[in-house]
Amino acid sequence: MGIGQSFWGMLDEPDRAAMLAAASRRTFAAGSVICHQGDETRNVLVVSRGRVRVSRYSLSGDESLLAVRGRGEIIGEVAAIDGLGRSATLTAVDTVEGVLITAPAFIRLCERHPRIVWALLRVQLARARAAADQQDLRTGPSLQRVGGLLLGLAHRDAGDMIATVPLSQRELAGIAGISRETLVRALKTLREQGIIATHRTRIEILREDELRALCGI
């Protein structure tokens, strides 16, 4: 998602200024946990730099990766609004910089700035649509499942047409619900077609339009 399509990109300058005035700037080291699933903290984070891994853990400790959020995206708004505990664990993939807003301050901002509420609504609708598309793909052919997964997890900074997925092949296979061998074959096919480039712990999407056409989304 480019910065213009992100939560921050949807706001005008007065709304951004109001949010910055209510926020404190924070930096999180790569690999550090920003908050744990079940925590009572209700702070909202808007990412300025870096990527955040959003995960849920089962009672047995198995991780389910929900998303990777990047520049301009908002995280934690649901907990701030509904007052319940954290539904996911947030981990810094690399060095993350952002602005942190307490729940009471964020609610006041929403009450006074309709554009912030409108941006939140658009973000939630986009995430719900992406989740529905991903669920549909999970029952399709392995190539479509892998392609849809990459699109769902990818994040693109402004001006950068290459989306990066900061995950290993083992992690991707587990999330897609396929074997590592099947994943490797699918990635090889996409790589030979010039749609992606694979690295040790990340996968770059080089031709996003072709990948979306392959997945039918």
Rank of each mutant, 00 (worst) to 15 (best):
T27V: 06
L45S: 11
I34K: 05
S24D: 08
H36D: 15
I34F: 09
A21V: 02
T41A: 06
F28N: 07
Q37R: 09
R51Y: 03
S24Q: 12
R51T: 00
V44S: 00
A23Q: 12
D39L: 05
N43L: 07
E40D: 11
C35L: 05
A22L: 06
S48D: 05
F28R: 07
L45Y: 15
V52L: 06
A29Y: 13
T27I: 06
S32A: 15
H36V: 14
A21W: 01
A21L: 01
C35K: 01
R25S: 09
V47P: 05
A21I: 01
A22Y: 02
A30Q: 01
A23Y: 12
S24K: 14
R25C: 07
G50C: 03
T41P: 00
R49P: 00
H36N: 15
C35F: 11
V46F: 07
V52E: 04
R51L: 02
I34Q: 06
G50Q: 05
A22K: 06
F28C: 07
M19L: 12
E40H: 03
M19V: 07
Q37N: 13
V47A: 07
A29R: 13
S32I: 12
N43C: 10
T27G: 04
S24E: 11
V44C: 00
V33P: 11
M19C: 05
M19N: 02
C35D: 11
R53W: 14
S32F: 11
R51A: 00
M19D: 00
S48H: 08
S24H: 10
R53H: 15
R53E: 14
R42G: 12
L20W: 03
V46P: 02
I34H: 09
R51C: 02
T41E: 09
N43I: 04
A22P: 02
D39T: 12
G31S: 07
R42P: 15
R49N: 02
A30D: 02
R25Y: 12
F28I: 10
T41N: 05
A21E: 02
R26V: 15
R42W: 14
N43W: 14
T41Q: 05
R53A: 13
G31N: 08
Q37T: 14
G38P: 14
L45P: 07
H36G: 12
A29M: 13
V44F: 02
I34N: 07
S48I: 02
S48T: 06
T27L: 03
R49M: 01
A23I: 10
E40M: 01
V46G: 05
V46Q: 04
C35R: 04
A21T: 03
R53F: 14
H36W: 15
V44Q: 00
R51Q: 03
R25W: 10
G38K: 00
E40N: 04
C35N: 08
V52R: 06
R42C: 11
S24W: 09
G50E: 03
Q37V: 14
A30T: 01
V52W: 06
H36T: 15
